[in-house]
Design a protein around this nucleic acid. Structure first.
Lengths: 232, 232
DNA sequence: GCAAAAGTGTTAACTTTACACCCATGT
DNA sequence: ACATGGGTGTAAAGTTAACACTTTTGC
């Protein structure tokens, strides 16, 4: 018998949890579910699931998001792994946490599974008690989001494809929790040259109609290659 | 029988891997070991180990570092979890990767275990082929280190307690791989007021003796609380 | 006295901040 | 015509970048 054949078989049960951010009604929201199985039956929780034996971790995170929202190709990033010894009542289950950023939170969710019907948006600044260590995970994700917002152009991912300058401005003020000068903010964003002016105005507003913009992702990627760094 | 009692038992075998950085002979180095067990017997690898059932992940990373170096209370941070389906020949073993930064790499290692005797420093810019997916892990850690070096005062952790300005300057130039103006760099670092001037000079050098400084960790923490952000 | 690295200041270019009024639209 | 939010420019302050020579020490 060769040496390698005598090696013990190893096995992992581990999960992914997703902190899915949306921005709606002028505030940052997180998608929660109500569990309908033990452990923590009936508790609110982050969407998550065990990772299958033949599944890449990121695939699993994408699956969780897809089942809940019908969305694919969304901004998603692994940010930390949580593995407290007693975090899971069924044994040692570590969880790899991802955060995702999706557009237009109230509309546009097309859940694919049954259990997703109980998903709902919750204001990020006022989270309820969550199952497992999900409160800690969600808070870490919010911190991470704030950080990213300052250093990468991810704010656009939270807005509809066509958005106004005020929407973007508000988003930054709300998530970073500080006032930002409107004119200076516009100058800075414009100087990056990563927005396309759609040359059309929003309609149906009871005041001066604002111009619409869209984010030019390709242009950003091109600039980034040349060493450009986004900073607010 | 209550519902909870029927839940299946879950179990994880997972590991930590540590990318331990040192700075010596004017270059960035990584601590490697040569494995003396299957799988990947005789291969060079990152130090790492399975996490015990009742052990916190961070504890496990600290244990790995301690066994190899005798060091505790070292700058260490989890940076990503790697879980490719086929990364481990014995089954699905995901690994939580940490990087650590230690002072004065060539001296000062006091390994605690036997297997650590085969640990050695290797230049970070010229890594050999490593076991498992360790090459990918090490490269991700180097990228992370560069990033951190620009945004947090971790350069000091790589230097001896008492260091000269040139040492610090070199360290930044070498790790960031670009020339940095000596005078401007000094002005910037000094403006942060996180160094203590030891008012004594290095001795035994065949040229003008440089002043020695030490990093004032407490002062940095105090400033950070007031909103100060370190940026190079 | 020479080789080696340490130490030091000024100016111009650029970036950031502070700040207030008029404009377009719907009702 | 008025209420609502949209849109715009300038000047002062602060920061960053470029740049070269003199000093100290050991041999």
């Amino acid at each position: 018998m060769s040496k390698t054949k005598t090696l013990p078989k190893l096995h992992s049960d581990f999960s992914v949890d997703c902190v899915i951010f949306g921005f709606d009604e002028g505030e940052l929201k997180i998608l929660l579910i109500e569990r309908n199985a033990e452990p923590f039956d009936k508790w609110k929780a982050l969407p998550g699931n065990l990772v299958k034996g033949d599944e890449e971790i990121e695939e699993a995170a994408e699956r969780v998001l897809y089942e809940l929202s019908g969305l694919e190709n969304v901004y998603m990033e692994q940010f930390r792994t949580f593995g407290g010894v007693n975090r899971h009542p069924q044994g040692r289950v570590i969880t790899v946490a991802y955060y995702a950023i999706i557009q237009s939170s109230s509309q546009g969710l097309h859940p694919v599974t049954n259990y997703a019907k109980d998903a709902f948006w919750w204001p990020a600044h006022d989270l309820p008690k969550l199952a497992f260590d999900h409160t800690e995970i969600a808070e870490a994700a919010i911190e991470q989001l704030r950080y990213k917002l300052k250093h990468e152009p991810i704010g656009f991912e939270l807005l509809p494809k066509e958005f106004t300058f005020s929407q973007l401005h508000h988003l930054y003020e709300v998530i970073l929790e500080r006032p930002i000068d409107k004119r200076n903010f516009k100058k800075k964003i414009m100087s990056f040259k990563i927005l396309t002016d759609l040359k059309k105005k929003q309609t149906g507003v009871p005041h001066r109609a604002p111009w619409l913009y869209t984010w030019n992702h390709n242009k950003y990627e091109a600039l980034k290659k040349k060493g450009f760094v986004f900073e607010i």
